[in-house]
Computed example of a mutant assay.
Amino acid sequence: MRSRSRTRTLTLIAAGVVAATFLGGAAAVAAPLIDNGWPYDHAVKADNAKTYTLAAVGDIACEPNDADNANNPAALKCGSPSLGGYDAEFATAKQALAMKPDAIALLGDEQYQVGKLSDFEASFEQAWGGLKFLARPAPGNHEYYSYTKKGDSETGQNGNGYFAYFNGHDQSGTPNATGQAGDDTADTQGWYSFDLGNWHIISLNAECNSAAFGNDCSTTGNGLLAQETRWLADDLENNHQQCTVAYWHQPAFSATTASTATVPASAPGAGGQEGGVTDAWWKLLYADRATLVLNGHEHAYARFQPMDPTGAVDTKKGIPEIIVGTGGEGLDSLAKNADGTFANPNVVTGYDQGYGVLKLTLTQHGYEFSYAPALKGAGQPASALDYTDSGSGDCRG
């Protein structure tokens, strides 16, 4: 039996019992057995092996147009014609529900603009609240950082609203120290892992340029991000599952930015300093022969070739990256060359005309994936709903 310090394990049992154990913390909680396979019956392959469904998406909920946000620009709030708004987040929530997922990987920026608890309650909760018990979230920059763009000026929450929403809080709104989003302490900021069938699933926090991380984005030394990186190394060392998927918010490799001042989109770190620190994570995952990396942040869908830590295509040991930033808040444009090809040559396919959720079917030795839009973006033609992407991959662990 594996030993993982500060690691959260989740076991989903098809017979109708859900048991969640927080190591070093609260006792397990089990739902009562009922006869309809709660929450969902598992699909079974021809060889009688159970499969599990993991839904994945990030960048979801618009900022509510309420009294708490009365002084913020209308263009950044729910109801703005340039954003997906409530229509989009309700559409993606409905799509995720139809997948009957065993768990939902939320890829950060669940709530805009700064993820206040009141914003989560007035927006994300309205569309996605019914799926909250299945959510396995990772935070994004909008849950940690200040937002001072486009005429707005809001103070960063350093994860307070995020943890208060997903982990619960006391009567004063102070987040619980542990819960569904992982530990919220001086030593841990929400990274955790769990098992689902034959899969090991890892949620990481890349929001290092925040007070909670001491504004320290170094993966070595004594800072919190360095501690997280060592935790990841230990977690992978103690992982005995054949299949591993990891997710965090800012991607290591970009699909919507042709280049930065110093880093090409196909090189690690193109997503800024947070994408840069994930270079260390990619090296660890690559050495562990991880199966898949999921990210958000870029408001589009993009699937990449399997890559080594330098961004070179490696079909034998490389890890595919899939960006799913189409949860509903808004859309970005994929970076393309003059001839229409993707600026990042490692992008296999991409979509930036609508909102949707990725469905992953986790099998004993691999996975199947499918993506289709649930709602087209503002001003997009009806044909925007025709896009689909699907396929399969093998585990290499």
Rank of each mutant, 00 (worst) to 15 (best):
R2K: 01
T9D: 00
T11N: 00
T11R: 02
L12H: 11
A15V: 04
A19G: 06
G24C: 00
A30F: 09
A55S: 08
C62P: 02
N72S: 15
A75Y: 09
K77T: 00
S82A: 06
E89D: 13
Q95A: 08
K100L: 14
P101R: 14
S118H: 12
F120V: 05
A127N: 14
W128S: 00
W128M: 01
G130C: 02
Y144V: 01
Y145S: 10
E154F: 07
N160I: 15
A164C: 08
F166M: 10
H169F: 04
H169E: 09
Q180M: 06
A181N: 12
D184W: 15
T185I: 11
A186H: 06
G190S: 12
G190R: 00
G190M: 05
F194Y: 08
F194L: 08
D195K: 13
I202N: 07
D216S: 10
T219Q: 14
N222F: 04
G223C: 03
E228Q: 07
W231K: 03
N239M: 11
H240R: 04
T257V: 10
T257C: 07
T257P: 06
S259I: 08
A261T: 15
V263Y: 07
A265I: 13
G271S: 08
Q273S: 11
G276H: 03
V277E: 12
L285K: 04
V293H: 13
L294S: 09
H297P: 06
G311D: 12
E321K: 02
E321I: 12
V348M: 02
V357E: 07
K359M: 10
L360T: 09
G366K: 02
Y367S: 01
A374Q: 12
A378S: 00
G379R: 02
S390D: 05
D394N: 13
